[in-house]
Write a protein that binds this DNA or RNA. Structure first.
Lengths: 340, 340
DNA sequence: CGGTAGCTTGTTGACGTCAACATGTCTAGA
DNA sequence: TCTAGACATGTTGACGTCAACAAGCTACCG
């Protein structure tokens, strides 16, 4: 695409200074709310600023100060439910801390080829980076994170040497599985997320261990790709199997697809089959039937990611203690004791 | 919150130049892929860059060039379905065009007090701005958009003097209403969005006009706030009224709440009541029953917003012809002819 | 009345990059 | 052999801001 031609520049400190009849430095002092400026002078400068429509040039400031006061945010799938919420929280927290957010979306050009953010990161004006993508995407992207650039990883595997902030997937999956067992179900089936997702594998492993620690049979895992469509397709197998009385779906969207499959097979929920989801997206309370699910606190995850990054920015020390945000089980109408 | 102390600066062109034994200008030429550099020299410079871990300083570039190659994006509610998708598309389109995205979230501090983006915009390093919030929020925010800053407005009222890009709400609402009438329903009820939303009022007006132009009775409008919860609460009234045989909900989330209310009242869908939504979020196909809805092309909206902004950036001419992106009716199982 | 402390204001230079111009080197053709 | 032109490389300065230092002024003290 075309590159824009140069635009005429806006008014600078010098323009304001000329109009107000003072030096640039005085204007700078006023602009930065420094003390030691005569009230009259300040008013004159302020008036001049308003007249010429002055606004400080961020680039010049960043150059001078050696800081951009901006955080890069590398995301792959912007529109997945969790990322959206986390992004929201990151935006809020960063803004509150006086940092801007620089979105660095990974372009999924053509076929799985992940490029974009990392090459662009090279020249992005950011002080640090928060990475909000799954591990395998990070691998595919031929990461070449510049040395010395502070980084915080959200929701990913632990095999990078960066601070990590994430939901406590294991605890959540245990909550879900135990809830179903406690209701009296013999065992719990699992509609898992994609193999490539670290979050999915942690949920799966925890489900498995919970079953094992109670001496239950571990049924084969069915795998979806997080989408409601995959939940529906895979869910048809579960719906057709009369053995199945309890299912833990790795997210709410797949749980929704599963509910549909069960409805189509005329299996009563929770009479014949109980279902638990993961996420607690707003709409889960209005699924039919309302979904019992594991609530994630994306807001906390985002907020703590920003906090961790700012600590790194300020101290240049890594706090490699991973931050784990606990979940909460929300019980609704989709779960009940097994019939008979 | 604390402000970070100064960080040591990264290596600059000068460092690379020293190491490679050339002038800074030559390094600059290599960095910018300019021709007229000896192959050997280029290699030497590239090696030096790699060694010191050079990456160009965005701030210095921006200062020099008078351009930031960055677009500000003012958003209020990041996590609403439509905004999310639009944001995704904007990110992709902007990145493809070589622009970065600067997120400027509006902080909803305390009680409806909207601040943040606009004051910060003053000093943000952006070439132009895309506004992605509803009109009334814009009003509350005491806009003071700097003169001469190119702006494009998405999904808002027309009373600002900026180019507008939006979904063709009227066409979509007409599609939904006509579909229900064509099935043979006497009239169509409407579960509308909040008064303050311009999109909601356009959908509502179009629904009303479609009914009037066919000589049908216009039932009273019930109003929600876009959330599934509000759809459920308001929907209970609709579900309790045997007169109601067809409902057009102003978005899918409220339609979901309505479906739940209808299930609870044991009203068959679509046997007793037909429902149409608006948005076509991914999960709508897996609601129970799968939801007939009006598909919005958020991707196109986002892409065209970026295009419109870039035109403005390049030409400094406004193209005040609003861009209207058409919708598409997706017919699923939640609509059928009325019983009898 | 000299001295100094405190305050306001101004001057200078450097942050990193790159366009414009200047210089130097080599080749080809007259 | 001389000159024009192509090409590689270097030098200078300006983009806008602000810290550091310098300078000027007033007030107050002994």
């Amino acid at each position: 695409m075309e590159v824009g031609k140069l635009r005429q520049r806006g008014p600078s400190i010098a323009d304001v200074a000329r109009l107000a009849g003072v030096s640039g430095q005085t204007v700078s002092r006023v602009a930065n709310d420094r003390p030691n400026v005569d009230a009259g002078t300040r008013d004159r400068v302020l008036a001049a600023m308003r007249e010429v429509g002055y606004r400080p040039n961020g680039a010049a400031r960043a150059l001078r100060n050696g800081q951009f006061r901006s955080i890069g945010l590398i995301v792959f799938e912007l529109s997945s439910f969790g990322n959206t919420r986390t992004l929201d929280a990151i935006g809020t927290a960063a803004t509150a801390a006086g940092y801007g957010i620089n979105l660095l979306p990974l372009l999924d050009a053509d076929q799985g080829k992940v490029t974009g953010a990392f090459s662009r990161l090279q020249e992005q004006a950011v002080d640090g980076v928060i990475i909000l993508i799954e591990a395998h995407q990070l691998d595919e992207a031929e990461i070449h994170l510049p040395e010395g650039l502070p980084v915080v990883v959200v929701d990913s595997s632990a095999h990078y040497d960066y601070p990590i902030v994430d939901t406590d997937q294991a605890q959540g999956a245990r909550l879900a599985t135990e809830h179903l067992l406690d209701l009296g179900h013999e065992t719990v089936w699992h509609l898992g997320g994609p193999e490539s997702s670290f979050a999915a594998s942690r949920r799966r492993r925890s489900w498995e261990q919970t079953l094992l620690s109670r001496g239950r049979v571990v049924p084969p895992v069915l795998v979806g790709d997080w989408s409601a469509t995959s939940g529906y397709e895979v869910g048809r197998q579960l719906a057709a199997d009369p053995e199945v009385t309890a299912v833990f779906a790795a997210n709410d969207a797949m749980a929704l697809g599963l509910l549909r499959a069960l409805h189509e097979e005329q299996r009563a929920i929770p009479g014949d089959v109980s279902v638990v989801g993961f996420d607690d997206q707003e709409s889960a309370a209005h699924f039919w039937p309302p979904l019992t699910t594991v609530r994630q606190f994306f807001g906390d995850v985002g907020r703590r990611a920003v906090e961790a990054l700012i600590v790194e920015l300020d101290s240049h020390e890594h706090h490699h203690q991973p931050v784990s945000v606990p979940t909460e089980l929300v019980i609704r109408a989709s779960t009940a004791p097994p019939r008979s």
